[in-house]
Amino acid sequence: MEQSTIKLSKKIKNDLRKQMNHPSETYETVIARLLKNTQEDDILSDEVIRNIEEGVADIKAGRVYTSDQVKRKLGLK
């Protein structure tokens, strides 16, 4: 494995240290895990995409309520 040196501020280094699962975990492992988690968070599931599409269809079809209508229906106003 090719190794490189990168410069980190003390704050970033401390932030990375706080993310370690155990004292002997390497910074590389921490960074790889954080990158993987970030990439996974960016991917929408099929269910989420369907829900978004249904919401957009509801808006286009006029199946929406104003905040005031919802409040009145719930007896809050």
Rank of each mutant, 00 (worst) to 15 (best):
S4D: 06
S4F: 02
T5L: 13
T5N: 14
K7I: 14
K7W: 13
K7G: 12
L8H: 11
S9H: 11
S9L: 10
S9K: 13
K10F: 06
K10R: 13
K10V: 11
K11D: 14
I12K: 07
I12H: 03
I12V: 05
I12L: 06
I12G: 03
K13C: 07
N14M: 08
N14T: 12
N14G: 09
D15I: 13
D15K: 15
D15T: 13
L16V: 05
R17H: 12
K18D: 10
Q19Y: 06
M20D: 01
N21H: 09
N21E: 08
N21V: 04
N21S: 00
H22D: 06
P23R: 09
P23D: 12
P23N: 13
P23T: 12
E25H: 03
E25F: 04
E25I: 00
Y27L: 08
Y27A: 08
Y27W: 08
Y27K: 05
Y27N: 04
Y27G: 02
E28N: 14
E28H: 15
E28M: 11
T29R: 04
V30L: 01
V30F: 04
V30D: 00
V30T: 09
I31F: 07
I31C: 05
I31Y: 07
A32I: 15
R33G: 05
R33N: 03
L34Q: 01
L35Q: 00
L35E: 01
K36C: 02
N37P: 07
N37H: 10
T38K: 09
Q39W: 07
Q39D: 14
Q39M: 14
Q39P: 05
E40Q: 13
E40H: 14
E40D: 15
E40L: 14
E40K: 12
D41Y: 00
D41C: 10
D41E: 08
D42F: 07
D42E: 14
D42H: 04
I43W: 00
L44C: 03
L44H: 03
L44A: 02
S45Q: 03
D46T: 06
D46L: 01
D46M: 12
E47K: 14
E47P: 09
E47V: 14
V48A: 05
V48Y: 05
V48D: 04
I49V: 15
I49K: 11
I49G: 09
R50Y: 11
N51M: 15
N51Y: 13
N51T: 14
I52Y: 00
E53N: 11
E53W: 01
E54W: 02
V56L: 03
A57E: 11
A57C: 07
D58F: 10
D58G: 13
D58W: 09
D58L: 14
I59D: 12
K60N: 08
A61N: 09
G62Y: 04
G62W: 02
G62H: 00
R63K: 04
V64D: 09
V64I: 06
V64F: 07
V64N: 02
Y65I: 10
Y65T: 10
T66P: 01
S67A: 06
S67V: 12
S67Q: 08
D68L: 09
D68S: 07
Q69V: 09
